[in-house]
Amino acid sequence: MLANKSSLKRRLQIVELVRKRGEVSVEELSQAFDVSSVTIRTDLTYLEEQRYLVRSFGKACYLAQRSGNNVVIPEVDGAARKAWETAIARFAAEAVDDHQSLMLGAGDIVHKILPFLSDRANLALLLQDIGMAQTAQRFVHCELLLTGGQLEQGATTLTGPDAEASVTRRSIDLCILEASGLDRDGNLLCADPAVARVSEAARRAAARTIVVAYQPQLGEHDGEVFGNVSDIDALLLDDGIDPETMELMQSKGLQFHRRESGILEFRKSTA
């Protein structure tokens, strides 16, 4: 479970202090926050697992940021990114049950979900990306439909008013969409405005919505809004997010669950 608010606030302050000073000892942190060294070590273990800092000989050391942004984890290569995306896709597929009407939006992570649906029975699958159709036919036993709509030259994603209307008319048990970023109000962003409009229509039409993303950057104007984290049922990410993003999720009432392979799941509270 996510730490309580006082613990989360302290941990965010620890990251900021270590960032400013480069490294800080356990004893110094214990005195600065007026808590025991055991509590500080627990905090540091959590923050190291989240890749916000590293521990070395009784000290917390800042994990250098990438130049040009606020992400506090090392740059990963293409193979590592694909592994993260596949892990996210695997956990997203767990939410799909037999006999469901499922809409899959556009995106690399969403595409990777399809092989994990090979053992599902009697799915009604609606796709926005015609590039996914061949994968779906190979792996999934289902009724397969496309949204229809416009297809720009060189693209595989269907967009436009016809695609939006097609989604709106359907009964969708679950839709899984992909975000490219978040803004500071918790809005989910898509880099392509036309894709974002179809995603918004799908989110509104579906009984449940799950959003997947790889290291979504917390920015202001990096895409078109298709929903808010408070509007969806779950958000699945890799662990390359900064403390501010973690705090944002809590402020929106989402519960935190760490899955295997370092995948982070934020769920709508059922309380």
Rank of each mutant, 00 (worst) to 15 (best):
Y52K: 06
Q50V: 03
R51T: 13
S37Q: 15
Q31C: 04
V54W: 05
Q50K: 07
G58T: 02
F57V: 06
S56A: 09
F57E: 14
V38Q: 07
R41Y: 01
I40F: 03
I40D: 07
K59L: 09
T42C: 04
Q50P: 01
S56F: 09
T45V: 04
I40P: 00
R55H: 15
Y46L: 12
C61D: 04
D34W: 04
D43S: 13
L53E: 09
S56Q: 12
Q50A: 15
E49M: 11
G58S: 07
C61F: 03
F33N: 14
E49H: 07
Y62M: 05
V38I: 07
R55I: 06
D43K: 06
A60S: 11
C61E: 12
L44G: 15
L53Q: 14
G58Y: 00
D43R: 10
R41P: 00
L44D: 13
L53S: 13
S37P: 00
V35K: 05
D34M: 14
I40W: 03
V38F: 03
L44K: 08
Y46C: 14
E49W: 02
Y52L: 11
T45C: 02
V35N: 10
C61I: 08
F33R: 14
Y62V: 06
Y62F: 09
V38G: 04
G58Q: 04
V54E: 14
S36H: 06
Q31I: 03
R51I: 02
C61H: 06
Y46Q: 15
Q31P: 00
S36K: 09
T45P: 01
S36V: 01
L53I: 01
T42A: 11
A60K: 11
F57K: 10
L47W: 01
L47V: 02
Y46W: 11
T42E: 12
S36G: 13
A32R: 15
Y46K: 08
Y52S: 15
G58C: 04
D43N: 06
G58M: 01
V54K: 06
